[in-house]
Nucleic acid binder design. Sequence first.
RNA 1: GGGCCCGUAGCUCAGCUCGGUAGAGCAGGCGGCUCUUAACCGCAAGGUCAGGGGUUCGAAUCCCCUCGGGCCCGCCA
Length: 493
Amino acid sequence: MDEETGLEHERRAKVARWRAEGREPYPWAFPGRVLTEAVRRAAGPLRPGESDPAVTFRIAGRLRSVRRHGQVAFLDLDDAAGSLQVLVRADLIGEDAYRGWLADLDPGDLVGADGIPAVSKRGEPSLEVRALTLLAKAISPPPEKYHGLQDAEERIRRPYLDLLTSPESRARARLRSELVGEVRGYFTSAGFTEVETPVLLPVAGGAAAAPFVTRSRYVGGDLQLRIALELPLKKLLVGGLEKVFEIGKVFRNEDLDSTHSPEFTELEAYWAYADYTEMRGLFEGLVARLLARAQELLPEGPARTKVAEVFRPPFPTIDFVDELERRSGLGDLLTMGRDELRAAARSIGSTVPDASPAGTFLDKLFEHYVEPSIERLTFVVDHPAATTPLAKPHRSKSGRVERFEAFVPGFELANAYTELNDPDEQARRFDEQARAAGGDRYVPDPEFVRAIRYGLPPCTGIGFGIDRLVMALTGAASIKDVILFPIARPRGV
RNA sequence: GGGCCCGUAGCUCAGCUCGGUAGAGCAGGCGGCUCUUAACCGCAAGGUCAGGGGUUCGAAUCCCCUCGGGCCCGCCA
C-alpha cells in the first residue's frame, strides 16, 4: 500500500469524526434515487430564484466541486446523466447542519441529496437541499477539477481516474458498448448463432502471430492463448451449425502501438453455402447501420464529419495484384519467385526475415506502395494465393484466392474469404507455410485438416477487430482511446 | 529492437537554455463572505525534483546508467 499523504490523513480524520458521531461513512444503499436529469426537467419551468416545494427528489453522485459563500454553498454533483448544482442554504437546514456538512464533505466524495427543484438567482437549475447523505467517503483526492487527469502514464495505469473526471471518456465507453450491441444485433437478426470457443488451446492457429503461452495443471503442460477464432468456428460448420459468429478477446504476443494491442476484441463470422461476394454485401450492410448509429451518438464536429466522409458509399474496390503492379512498376507479380519478391521488399527497406513465406514479401510491398493512398473505406480483393493459406482459390483468376480486405486510412479493418474447404489442398498450404522457416507464419493444425476431411460446406468467413472498428467509427487516433484498460508494464521498483 | 521527447507537491504546470538553499494555481487546513458555476479575499502548511551513479566548492538544472510513459521507425493477422 502507498504511504498516506497529508490529504488522505485529513480525510481519514473526517471518517473517524463521522463514526464517533454514530454516523456511517459507507452506508449500504440509497433507495429511491433518481438521475439528475429528472431534477433538471422539473426545474425547467421555474424562474430564477424560484423553487417548487410540491415535489421532492433524491439524487446521488460524485461531488465534483464546492463553492462556499458564508451562509450559502453550491455543490456540483455528477451522475450518469451529467452534472447538477446542489444549493445548500444555512437558513433552510439550520446553521449547525450547514457547518457540519461543509466541514466533512470533500470533492470526490459520493454524496446523496434530498431536496426540491429550484433555479438559482443566476439562473442555474439546482436541487435545493433539505438533507445530505454521505454514501462513500473518498480517502484519496480526485484529480484536478478543471484540467482532469493529464498525465499520459497515469491515464493508462489508472483509467478510472480519467473516467471519473472526464465525461468525454465516459461517453466514449458507452459509445463503444452501443456499437458492439449494434454489431451483435446485426448478426443475430441475420440468423447467425453467437457461440463461444476456447481461449486456451494446445496450438494457437488461424493466423500468423506469436502466441502467449501458459501452463495447465490439467493437461500437465503448456497451452497457448488463441490468436484468432477461425479454426474452431469452421469446425462448428463441419458440425452442422450453418451461420455462427463469436465476439471475443484474442491475444498476440507483440508490441503495442496506435493500431495494435496485445489483447484485443475480434469478431469472426462464418456462413455456410455463401461466398465472399455475399459476405461483402453483409458487411456493407453492417457498415451502413453502424455509421448511422455512430453519427447519431457522436457530438457534432470535425471528427464526426471526417468519419462520415470515410464511410460514405459507394466504396472503391481495388484488385490487389493489378493495383500493386501499377503503383510499384514491378513486373508480373504472380510469376515472380520468392527470391525476386524478397529483393523487391528489401529495396523498399523491409527487414522481414529472409526465410519468410513469399506472401509476407507481397504484403510488405502492398503496405508500402498501395496502403498510403487509401483515403476512404476501400475494398482490396483477390490476393495472391501465397498470402492467404486458409482461403479458397479464385474461381477464375489463376494464382489468386477469393478474398477481400476492408481498409480505412491508417489500418486494415476487416478480412474475409471464400473459405478453403478442400482438406488435401489445406494440408498442402500448411506444408508450404511450414517449409518457410523463420519469421511468424501459420502454424499447421493437423486436427483442423482432420475436421474438414468430414466435409466443410462451401462457406465464407469474415474477421474484424472490434477496437479498430470503434476507432474508425469514432475518429479515435489510438487503439488505447477505445480500450478501457490498456496494457501497461509493471511499475519499476 | 533503433531514434527523438517527457517524468518537479494529491492534481495541473513554471523553473532546466546559461549550476547558487524549490515556485504558482487547484485540492486540503484556519479565518472571512447569502447566488456562485475554473467563485472570491487573507494566513499558514504541503517536495525521494522518477531511481542510481558521476562532474562540481555547490546539481531539479550538466554527463552516464536504469525504470516508466509518449511520438516516429522496424517487427507483427
